[in-house]
């Protein structure tokens, strides 16, 4: 048994087009590190400065990990982790503040 990680379209370039990959770990952070070992570059798209990137949603089974323990959320065999890019935007871009947040 392992943990299934579901990959969104935009990140499938890191997984040779696969919609889901498997990994192991005790926490979400160690699972991501394990998967990144076979799909290099994936971690950087999910984690920045030791924190989950703001505009990526990661779910453990049915729950957004932000409402669990973030990267320290415990994971176990049989769990499913789903990654979805947040769908966001808005006219606020006129302000320079958001542009700095985005980059």
């Amino acid at each position: 048994m392992a943990i299934e990680v579901r990959i969104p379209t935009i990140l499938r370039s890191y997984t040779d087009g696969q919609k889901a990959v498997e990994g192991t770990g005790e926490t979400l952070a160690s699972l991501i590190a394990d998967v990144d070992g076979r799909h290099a570059g994936l971690r950087d798209r999910l984690v920045e400065d030791g924190e989950l990137r703001r505009f990526v949603n990661i779910y453990l089974n049915d729950e957004d990990v932000r409402f669990l323990g973030g990267l320290e959320t415990p994971v176990a065999d049989g769990d499913t982790v789903t990654i979805l890019p947040a769908v966001a935007g808005g006219s606020w871009a006129a302000s320079d503040r958001i542009a700095r947040v985005a980059h």
Partner: peptide
């Protein structure tokens, strides 16, 4: 994927472009 701009034109803002993740 749709959204509205309520005070500005119907053109993608810098925010819209930065976060667009569905090519």
């Amino acid at each position: 994927i749709y959204h509205s701009h309520t005070a500005t034109e119907a053109y993608p803002s810098r925010t819209d472009i930065a976060y667009a993740a569905e090519p």
